[in-house]
Design a protein around this nucleic acid. Structure first.
Length: 255
DNA sequence: AGGTCAACCTGAGCGC
DNA sequence: TGCGCTCAGGTTGACC
């Protein structure tokens, strides 16, 4: 991961005015007029460690870091909490950028992003509009951040299952009732996953080290050969590859 | 123009 | 024990 020029200097003594998120990017609005843009990629994680004894912030307790550094600790930010925020990313697909806050909306990473799935801007109509004329499979279209922002491979597979839509279906054929079902399914899968603290497969953990729980509730993801969770369906979960990514679905009840 | 695929990295897990 | 292969929560850019 290449870092911005003079990265440390541009962060030193800066205050974070606001922490937010757009699509899969974490945004720290700094008092310097720049925004620190962060992406975890596949394997990135942030962890917060107390500098002295344990640190309590709200409902969270942060333990001091263990002695020694992991070789994939790429960025260590010392705050006056006092705490260390460590960015660890063994595959180095993650990203950190500093962008002029006034130009953030028009930055190439953000200007063409689709709507936030939990916002009022994401509707059956907007989804139908953005899928119109697209000949790619609906699975690939949903992974495309320009269709809807923030969905990854797990949640696309899960949402298509709950909507009863085959991942192989041509995107443009998702209209009317199917588009409504898909919007509902995307929203409910994301809400459930957030409530469960996310999905911990290999790398993902929350900043205090806690693991997510949603991986125990996957209906189809990573369940190849297992029975379909729908009680009235006798199908078995199948794995196929689309656009180079694994897709899991039930051929019996997704069409 | 739009779709597909390799590339970017490291590590874990598997079969032999 | 070790080698070689496949796979992994993502995104971009080159190529048809």
């Amino acid at each position: 991961m290449p870092f911005p020029p003079h990265f440390a200097e541009r962060l030193t003594s800066r205050h974070v005015k606001r922490l937010s998120r757009r699509a899969k990017y974490i945004l720290a609005d700094l008092d310097s007029g720049e925004t620190l843009v962060m992406h975890l990629g596949m394997s990135g994680r942030f962890s917060v460690h107390a500098m002295g004894r344990e640190l309590r912030l709200g409902n969270y307790v942060y333990e001091p870091a263990k002695a020694g550094r992991d070789k994939h600790d790429h960025v260590i930010i010392r705050t006056d909490a006092p705490a260390e925020i460590v960015f660890n990313d063994h595959r180095r697909f993650g990203l950190m950028l500093l962008v002029d806050t006034a130009l953030l909306e028009t930055h190439p990473l953000f200007e063409a992003l689709g709507p936030e799935p939990l916002s009022t801007g994401f509707t059956a109509k907007s989804l139908e509009d953005s899928l119109r004329g697209r000949r790619t499979p609906v699975k690939s279209a949903l992974l495309d951040q320009h269709t809807v922002a923030g969905l990854g491979n797990i949640y696309v597979c899960e949402a298509l299952f709950y909507a009863g839509i085959s991942p192989k279906r041509v995107a443009s054929s998702v209209r009317a009732e199917r588009a409504r079902a898909l919007v509902r399914a995307i929203r409910s899968v994301l809400r459930a996953a957030i409530k469960a603290g996310g999905s911990s497969l290999r790398d993902y953990a929350q900043a205090n080290g806690a693991l997510g729980e949603f991986q125990h509730r996957f209906a189809v993801y990573d369940r190849e050969g297992k029975p379909c969770p729908r009680s009235n369906c006798k199908g078995k979960i199948k794995r196929i590859v689309q656009g180079g990514r694994s897709t899991f679905f039930c051929p019996g009840c997704q069409s």
